[in-house]
Amino acid sequence: MAADGMNAALISRARKIRLVAFDVDGVMTDGTLYLADDGQEYKGFNSLDGHGLKMLKSSGVELAIITGRSSRVVEHRARNLGIEIVHQGAHDKLAVYETLCRELGIACETTAYMGDDVVDLPVMRRAGLAITVPAAPDLVKAHSHLITTREAGRGAVREACEFLMRAQGTLDTVLAPYLK
C-alpha cells in the first residue's frame, strides 16, 4: 500500500486489531436468503473467504460472528472454520459487541467489524476499524474505514483478512507453508 496519509492511517488502525467480528448475510454471503418450504435456510459461503478466516485466526487475531438472524447453517460454518464466538439473533448488535469486548478484556479500538447495512452502523462506529463491501448503502460506506473491492460472498472477507495480515506483517508467514 502507498504510504500517503489516508493509507498510513488505515494501516495504523489495522495494526492494532486483535478481534474481528463479522456480520453474515451480505458479508460472508452475497445476502441472498434461500428458504425451503419446511423453513430450512440455506446460504452460500465462499471457500476463499473461509480459508482467509482460518489464516487470520492462525495469525493470532480472534474471530467472532455477530448476526441478527439465527440459522443452523451459520453454526455449522463457524464450527468448520474454528470460530468459537458466535452470537446469532443479535437484535442489538452493539450491546453484544460491547459485552464481548468486556468479556475478552479488549479495547474497542483493537477490534474491527465487517458489516453491510445500517443495522451494523452502531458497531462499525464503535470499532477501531470499520469494514464494508461495495454493495453497502452509501451511509454505511461513509462510516467505513475500508471498503473491499470484492463483493460480499465473493472474496470480500478474504480481502479484508489479507489486508489485516499484510498491515500486521503476518501475511508472508501465514502463506510461507504454501510456497515450500
Rank of each mutant, 00 (worst) to 15 (best):
G82D: 00
I83P: 09
I83Y: 11
I83A: 07
I83F: 07
I85C: 05
I85F: 08
I85D: 06
I85Q: 10
V86Y: 11
V86I: 14
V86K: 05
V86F: 09
H87T: 12
Q88V: 13
G89E: 07
G89N: 10
G89P: 06
G89K: 04
G89C: 10
A90Q: 05
A90N: 08
A90I: 11
D92Q: 06
D92P: 08
D92F: 08
K93I: 08
K93E: 14
L94S: 11
L94R: 07
A95R: 07
V96W: 12
V96G: 13
V96C: 14
Y97A: 09
Y97I: 06
Y97G: 13
E98N: 06
E98Q: 10
E98A: 04
T99L: 10
T99R: 15
T99V: 07
L100S: 06
L100T: 11
C101P: 02
C101Y: 05
R102F: 01
R102Q: 09
R102V: 13
E103F: 08
E103Y: 04
E103K: 13
E103L: 13
L104M: 15
L104A: 04
G105D: 02
G105E: 01
G105T: 03
I106A: 12
I106M: 13
I106D: 04
A107Y: 03
A107G: 10
A107K: 06
A107I: 01
E109H: 15
T110P: 00
T110W: 04
T111M: 05
A112R: 02
A112H: 03
A112C: 03
Y113G: 07
M114N: 12
M114I: 15
M114P: 10
M114Y: 09
G115Y: 02
G115V: 11
G115Q: 06
G115I: 07
D116T: 04
D116H: 03
D116W: 00
D117K: 00
V118H: 04
D120F: 08
D120Y: 03
L121C: 05
L121N: 05
P122H: 14
M124F: 08
M124A: 10
M124N: 14
R125F: 05
R125M: 08
R126S: 09
A127Y: 07
A127H: 10
A127N: 11
A127R: 12
G128T: 08
G128Y: 02
G128M: 05
L129W: 07
L129T: 15
A130W: 03
I131M: 15
I131R: 04
I131C: 11
T132D: 09
T132V: 07
V133I: 14
P134I: 10
P134N: 11
A136W: 07
A136D: 13
A136Y: 14
A136L: 04
P137Q: 10
D138R: 08
D138I: 10
D138S: 14
D138Y: 10
D138H: 13
D138C: 03
L139C: 12
V140N: 01
V140A: 02
V140G: 01
K141S: 01
K141R: 14
K141T: 04
A142M: 05
H143K: 03
S144R: 09
H145D: 15
L146Q: 00
L146Y: 14
I147C: 13
T148N: 05
T148G: 03
T149G: 03
R150N: 07
R150V: 02
A152R: 00
A152V: 00
A152I: 00
G153W: 07
G153S: 06
G153V: 12
G153A: 11
R154V: 08
R154T: 03
G155H: 03
A156T: 02
